[in-house]
Design a protein around this nucleic acid. Sequence first.
DNA 1: CGTGAGTTTGACCAGATGGTCAAATCAAGA
DNA 2: TCTTGATTTGACCATCTGGTCAAACTCACG
Lengths: 202, 202
Amino acid sequence: MPKDRAPTRIQKKNRAAILEAALNVFSAHGFRGATVDQIAAEAGLSKPNLLYYFPSKEAIHTALLSGLLDTWLAPLHDLDADGDPMHEILSYIHRKLQMSRELPRESRLFANELVQGAPRIHEALSHDLKTLVNEKTKILTRWMDEGKIARLHPHHLIFSIWALTQHYADFDVQVRAILGDEDPFEGAEPFIDTLYRKLLTP
Amino acid sequence: MPKDRAPTRIQKKNRAAILEAALNVFSAHGFRGATVDQIAAEAGLSKPNLLYYFPSKEAIHTALLSGLLDTWLAPLHDLDADGDPMHEILSYIHRKLQMSRELPRESRLFANELVQGAPRIHEALSHDLKTLVNEKTKILTRWMDEGKIARLHPHHLIFSIWALTQHYADFDVQVRAILGDEDPFEGAEPFIDTLYRKLLTP
DNA sequence: CGTGAGTTTGACCAGATGGTCAAATCAAGA
DNA sequence: TCTTGATTTGACCATCTGGTCAAACTCACG
């Protein structure tokens, strides 16, 4: 294991390559389905060399998840209490859908973990995420009280946004099997936009 | 392997026990994450005994998936072209949400498979499912043409229903981590109902 | 009962997999 | 260039896992 001094050029490069490879493999096969050999091969390293940078398969997975959690929650984090309600929510939705399009591996990484009961991130869920969501539902509730948007169950409003946007990344195969050549996001964007405009208009 | 005569009492019991156990294990850990030993233990059989009834782990998985596919698609199948549009769609949604509540393991079984690229059911997706969906989107389109429901992209309308309802089964841990003691379906039912009433009203 | 088909199991195997280690190689600063 | 720490690797190990097999046991039926 490299010492914890300032990381060398090589350390930076290899750690990044490993995490990139791990994202590919874990998101495609889940934690159990991924093998260290596979990740090493994809990172262009031998297995022992990979294990020189991370102590175990689990450590890679953990590093990956915790490193991506911020990115993943950034859009919700940026929901601005002082902005225009409808605009803020539609922007949030837009960014989430954008992320499904541009970062589908990240979405599937979390989906894999969640669908199997989140054995490795239960912590983050019931603390960090819960705190963030509760903070934002307060804002939503205020907007509803002020009559700026329709009154709805704020938690379920957020769940619906997650469900609708991440569906396109997580269940990509199914969506494409049905749509054929048509670009899923081409139709999804206006559909979801229309849906929330209608839903949120008081 | 048992002969293919009429199944004996014991064969019926054990096959059923195996499929039930397999549903538990596969839905909780995915195909790769499940072990034959685990399934056998949960079914109350020894591993060789289990493999006397099914030739391989893969065979159990396949039998399970194909056996459940009909159940899973029944609600959409029952969408009646001659019924009242709004009522038909809301009924479909209601049944899908009910299934998320009552058959979450089945939902997660499919979710596990889909999120990893559906390596074992690509066939069924791009044929059976596609055919069924296209048949039903025709009905939806007709209803839109007749002005009975709002004009929307029919495929994305169906995707949205899948996403919103299955989210509660597939990402159950996350939903519960955030809601705490509150029953997710208590709030989900009226939320989703309201959402589609607003969305579909022309 | 007795018998043959149906059922169950302990012992076993081969390959996969996560991880270790000592030795070899490389890189950068004195 | 020399030295020392960083990096890389081949060989290896223990465990897990899907699957096999012959032998033992059990059940239903004549």
